[in-house]
Design a binder for these strands. Structure first.
Lengths: 243, 243
DNA sequence: TGGGATTTGTTCGTATGTATT
DNA sequence: GAATACATACGAACAAATCCC
């Protein structure tokens, strides 16, 4: 049984240059950690030691605890009593649940947007895709990955529904963890033309087409993953093996 | 401007008889508070003083803090720095967002269930509705209210998707707060025949009908609320009033 | 305008628990 | 199997802020 706590011990949150005397607020720490996950800089299983985080962030253990608690509730870290926190490692089952949830939400979400298209929204979406393209041109892979996820978050924000927005933020972050764990070797992150297609459908006010494109897009992302083979977690029943 | 902190000061979590020496776990405290909200025993605006909760639950302030943090993340309590916690009072806007979210999730959810009907599930659902009927017969109003919400949670659980399950648990709890705040005077809680209709559609394997019934049901709940008139919150611009 | 009571926020020392050698 | 090192969990006291009178 692979413990979620047996990976590298050093905190993966690098401070740009030496010690950082600046003390970050609670929310800033949370945002930084979340962004690190989105950029695949914090990998699943990485231990998050309260003392280390407190020192690096110029904060205190009590505050770090709060942040970890919040991240745990967002399923981004797992909290084991008396053993501390580490970046979550979603199981195959959990990964499927994440995608099932996104399949439930996102097609309806873009359909809703397409049924009341606003030019300002389309504008923002196109600007975002332009950023994606720029990051792609620069070969800035962490940035590409983050922006790909943030496109979906942006769609949620444009609905104006903050609950939906938060949900999708969590789901995208978890998706990033899933991708780091189960990505097939040769994967071109989230082809951007699919994003543009969705925008086109929204601009055209074609709700059912937008929904269909999103369904296809999600399906496509899921297909770049190896959620079938039991890699990563081995629920092998040793007892049965020797019976 | 009505502050969310100006309601009754006494904690509304009654211990059955005198002091309770038993010390509850963190999760138990959370469950109890959540259930109290579901049963309308904790009303919006009720202050939640850490010391009081700690004593009643036989716990410590530190633990209570964790529970409150979690409840805050579930939007069941609002946490104001240096002023403590109180049961959340969703605004009209937030109420609309809750229903929008439920409209997004629940029709697709029951459609999914209806497309792969299992007799065991139908059984559990019917048993639940029977409990609702029993509570109705006894006139146990808190129980009726709680069970009505829990029907929707049960549907989510039957999908086997824990993320969806948690989402709906949160949404239902928030709906309960919304109902206490904006219910029109004469409201018969959630007519149970609508629940039965949904079950029938699921059993019959009629996905689109199940979805349609759920849409109708949600719409019906929303219509028993007074989300149009600006009661409760008065965003009156006093400056404009005297200009 | 001020003072006292109440409640939250923080800190520190210690205890407990886990993993390792 | 025992001892050690390490990190989390706990408890109490102190400090700061808010509310009410």
């Amino acid at each position: 049984m692979t413990s979620p706590l047996d990976s590298g011990a050093s905190a993966a949150i690098a401070s740009p240059r030496g010690r950082r005397p600046k003390s970050l607020s609670n929310d800033e720490i949370h945002a930084k950690l979340q962004q690190a996950v989105l950029e695949h800089r914090l990998k699943p299983g990485t231990r998050l030691v309260e003392d280390h985080l407190a020192e690096v962030a110029g904060s205190t253990r009590a505050r770090i605890r709060q942040v970890l608690l919040r991240l745990a509730h967002e399923s981004l870290v797992t909290l084991v009593p008396n053993r501390g926190a580490c970046v979550a490692s979603p199981t195959v089952e959990e990964a499927r649940e994440v995608f099932a949830m996104r399949h439930l939400l996102e097609p309806s979400m873009v359909q809703w947007l397409a049924e009341r298209p606003r030019q300002a929204d389309v504008q923002r979406l196109r600007e975002h895709v332009a950023q994606e393209a720029a990051a792609r041109a620069e070969g800035d892979r962490p940035r590409i990955i983050r922006l790909s996820g943030e496109f979906h978050m942006l769609l949620a924000e444009l609905t104006g529904n903050r609950i939906l927005s938060r949900s999708l933020r969590e789901l995208c972050a978890q998706t990033c963890l899933v991708i780091t764990l189960y990505d097939k070797p040769n994967t071109p992150a989230c082809p951007y033309h699919e994003h543009e297609d969705v925008i086109d459908a929204i601009e055209a006010g074609n709700g059912s087409r937008a929904a269909e494109l999103m369904r296809h897009h999600l399906h496509h992302i899921e297909q770049t993953l190896a959620l079938d083979d039991p890699a990563g977690e081995a629920p092998v029943d040793l007892q049965a093996l020797f019976a």
